[in-house]
Design a protein around this nucleic acid. Sequence first.
DNA 1: AACGGGAGTGTCTACGTTTACATTGGGGCA
DNA 2: TGCCCCAATGTAAACGTAGACACTCCCGTT
Lengths: 353, 353
Amino acid sequence: MTRRKRSNPATIKDVAHELGMSVATVSRALSRPQLLRPETRERVMDAVERLGYRPNLMARGLRQGLANAILFVAPNLSPFFLEIFAGAEAVTRDSQFSLLFGNSNGDLGSVQHFFEQITSGKADGIILLTGVAPDGYAAGERQLPPLITVLERLPGAVVPVVHTDHFAGAQEAVRHLVELGHRRIAHIAGLRRVPSAIRRLEGYRTALAAAGVPATAELIETGDFTMSSGAAAMMRLLALPQPPTAVFCSNDEMAYGAIRAVVKMGLSVPEDVSVVGFDDQNLAEFYNPPLTTVAVPRHELGRRAAQELIDQLAGRDVAREVVLPTRLVVRESTAPPTARRPGSRVRHAKRNR
Amino acid sequence: MTRRKRSNPATIKDVAHELGMSVATVSRALSRPQLLRPETRERVMDAVERLGYRPNLMARGLRQGLANAILFVAPNLSPFFLEIFAGAEAVTRDSQFSLLFGNSNGDLGSVQHFFEQITSGKADGIILLTGVAPDGYAAGERQLPPLITVLERLPGAVVPVVHTDHFAGAQEAVRHLVELGHRRIAHIAGLRRVPSAIRRLEGYRTALAAAGVPATAELIETGDFTMSSGAAAMMRLLALPQPPTAVFCSNDEMAYGAIRAVVKMGLSVPEDVSVVGFDDQNLAEFYNPPLTTVAVPRHELGRRAAQELIDQLAGRDVAREVVLPTRLVVRESTAPPTARRPGSRVRHAKRNR
DNA sequence: AACGGGAGTGTCTACGTTTACATTGGGGCA
DNA sequence: TGCCCCAATGTAAACGTAGACACTCCCGTT
């Protein structure tokens, strides 16, 4: 027995029958109204309204070979990616497209799974934030689906990308610290397998070199972009014989963690340690102290990616590469270094909860 | 001319032809393997692999009257809702269902639009976080789609709901402040049209009454759940002739804003003003100071909602109501009131950027 | 030897659309 | 008056799949 949608029995056939017309006419009234006599169109619209008819999108999709959906794949559900998602959502909201969300969870198998959703016809294209594609695709054996990458490039494949200049952004952040007078500037880097994190690290190194400050390996710590990893890294930095007076973090969340760690040790930001983040998430402005950070246009990244993908699906040609500018936003987590040596720490006991 | 999916020409027919079998056999190999001789099944699987065949989900969906997708509708993209989304995602990830995201943006028209996506067959059911349904549905004229609401009830309709006890949570928060010795306790409420915000307000009032503290209208401010509205509300409270020594906020974001406002005025948290939030978003633990707040099991709310909806779609019967417990998490943003009167404010000038 | 039944597979229709192609009728023009 | 063409509509064939039903063996039973 055929299982039927309980909700909407009204089909195009019902509408046609109600009016004594053919289904073709009804179909045209909906998709290409200019082909019909205005009066006929009216009558159809009336009946559609009266019967509560809604076209079955799966039937339409099957017929046209289009799902009218876009799949957004992020490596996790952190606010940063979700703010990009919000940008994409703003675009699809006014379009015929639905937005599917996929969380790859850093797992390559998942990405493969999402790619197959395309060949299965669940979506027409992918907005990919993970910078990795399953083997078969990356190697070019299997044809890539309509795809646009955000922030990360897909190695070994020519795919349009919407991103920002992490290298320049990082340099600007470090230069800001140098200009404030800092010399012992640490970096809490992101995971080495994330290309954009590498670029930020390189920007850090380059800016230090340009300022004539020798790079010190002990001042480079690594986290996994989470607040707790940022806090842990900061703890290690504070435990150095000669701790840094400033820290540049590879993203905002690690910066929050770093600030928490500083405060927990009885020191303060920016008096004892200046902290700079990267991303300028919504919260940065309201963190305590408000975070100096490199603004990444998250919303715009999402918008552009969605727009480019839709254009691509419509057969219009799209830019190979869109680079959006970053911008250093100076708030209250950075200041000139003070004479006081942060090495002499723990002014008052850490308060327990 | 028929527009074809460029990516996957291989259909069930191709597989059948390759093996000299009928399409039915191939179909069965995939959906009901136990009906086939093991050897046949093997051969089919082989060919499927070889040809890179993936079933067309729209054709399957059309045939079966199922989209195998769930639509998640939230009023906005704030972290709070997205953390609930993450919970739902964890469930659908291991299921046959895809997760569609819809942002109603507080707009009733959008909600209507999403309801129609169901009758259009884009999804099989809805997880609704907005507490409002389009007129026709709410009034019972049109049949409700498979639906589960989260946190908010749908007025005038019997729909399963997964939520928490806002009333009890708010009471616990206020009781905590009372026990610390506070008497002048303010509340930064949420929008009056959001039922859960009303419940929190009621919890606040009830707890105050229970403690024998008379309620004062001037101590109740209203925000719209954003950080900036929380900051603005706090500014108004601090401007009172007799400012509060503690503030209970209807959500975490307004609490962050409130703390920022306090600090901006040269006062500190919790020494001058204690602040309590509601939700326990991921960030609360790493805010500065770490925020005392009422933990709402966001992830679990999402999990349960998705699970119940999937059960419902499978024809299993589901609970009318699931109530998950809240729990007060005491961190460092609350402390006993000090002798110092916060009225004498602005100890040092606000720093400009 | 005849029959029943079940395992395994094939045939073919329906799901709800869109659209290529066919048909109709009427108006403009010679 | 006859013809052509175009506007408006109808007919019917796909799109790719699932499953109802039909068929063919073969084995076990009588």
